[in-house]
Simulated assay, not measured.
Amino acid sequence: MHNYCKTIGALAAASALVAGNANAEVEYELHTGYTSSYLFRGVELGDDLVEVGVDAAAEWNGLSISGGVWAAAFDQDGTSNDIDSEVDLYTEVGKDFGFATASVGYIYYWNLDNTNGGTDDQEVYFSLSRDLGFATASLTYFWDIIENDGGNEGYSELALSRAFELNQCLTLNVGGNLGYLIEGGDFTALTTKVSLDWGFAEHAKLSPFAAYSIALGESTGSLWNSTENEFVAGSLLSVGF
């Protein structure tokens, strides 16, 4: 259940959409990393997350188009050497209206092995974002298409982020988000994250990070009813071209 079989429809769709525009360029990014725990919207899903992914993005007729795939392996129960795995496929289309940028996206959660009970899931999300000067703010609503027992109960998220350029090679990123269950009428978690982007090469960067999530959920029957405060740390290596 990330934010993102290596030949995916999302990348093919992005390339096809921009093929008719000679001025459009598709930008790609490869990334891999490690995180001490798999933390998803304030819920700890396992330990020792190892991830790899690829993203593509382009502009076409005033629209921003992106897509990608994210694959991960981790220890779901934290007590054995059994490795669980997950692959997420996602795509998004956005447009800048001046006062705000509106986006709509789709995520397919492919849960391999017995991850999340072996049940796949799908979400469509709608988002509004705006640069406020002191920070960039966004509000996103995630609609669970499948609505299985692990459904998100109308999950929404309010986020703030800001980047500080320390020098030509280093950028400090700080941010936080607050989750809310619309149908359950309950907050889920407040998560803050700090990362440092080190551009050690022209198109490559190493990004160590740390995040802390404060559990807020109390809705009976939801994923967040039994969550606890969580701290995670890790690092991400990304290469763009």
Rank of each mutant, 00 (worst) to 15 (best):
S207F: 07
V54R: 06
M1V: 13
V174F: 07
N23T: 15
E147H: 11
Q122Y: 04
A137S: 12
M1G: 09
Y125T: 03
S127I: 04
K205Q: 12
L11H: 06
L236S: 13
W143P: 05
G98Y: 00
G68V: 05
G240Y: 05
L181F: 13
I83N: 05
G217E: 01
V52Y: 14
E25R: 15
T188K: 00
V194D: 01
A14Q: 08
S207L: 10
N23P: 05
N116E: 08
F142R: 09
V26M: 15
Y180H: 12
A57M: 14
L190M: 12
L17C: 08
L181Y: 12
G53Q: 00
A210C: 10
A71E: 05
L172E: 06
L160C: 09
N23G: 15
G105H: 02
Y28P: 06
G175R: 03
I146R: 11
G185C: 10
L196Y: 04
S156P: 01
F134R: 08
T220Y: 00
E27M: 13
F97I: 07
A215L: 08
E157A: 09
V43A: 12
F231A: 14
V239I: 15
V54F: 12
I146F: 03
K95F: 02
A12Q: 14
A10W: 03
D47I: 03
N116I: 01
N116H: 00
V174K: 00
L30D: 06
L112I: 08
T91I: 05
N148S: 14
F142M: 11
Y125S: 08
W70R: 04
A10K: 05
Y180N: 06
F74H: 02
A201D: 14
T227Q: 07
S129Q: 10
A14T: 15
N177T: 10
S235G: 13
A233D: 04
S235Q: 03
A210P: 01
S36W: 06
F142G: 01
N167E: 08
N21W: 10
V26C: 10
N111Q: 09
A10P: 01
F164C: 06
N114Y: 00
N3C: 07
A159G: 08
A233V: 07
S156Y: 07
H2R: 07
S85W: 04
S64Y: 11
T191I: 06
Q168F: 03
A135S: 11
S15A: 14
G199K: 10
S161G: 13
G154R: 02
I214P: 00
S80C: 13
G133M: 07
Y212Q: 04
L206E: 03
A56T: 12
G234R: 05
S235R: 00
I182F: 09
L196H: 05
Y38W: 14
E147N: 14
E86D: 12
D120A: 03
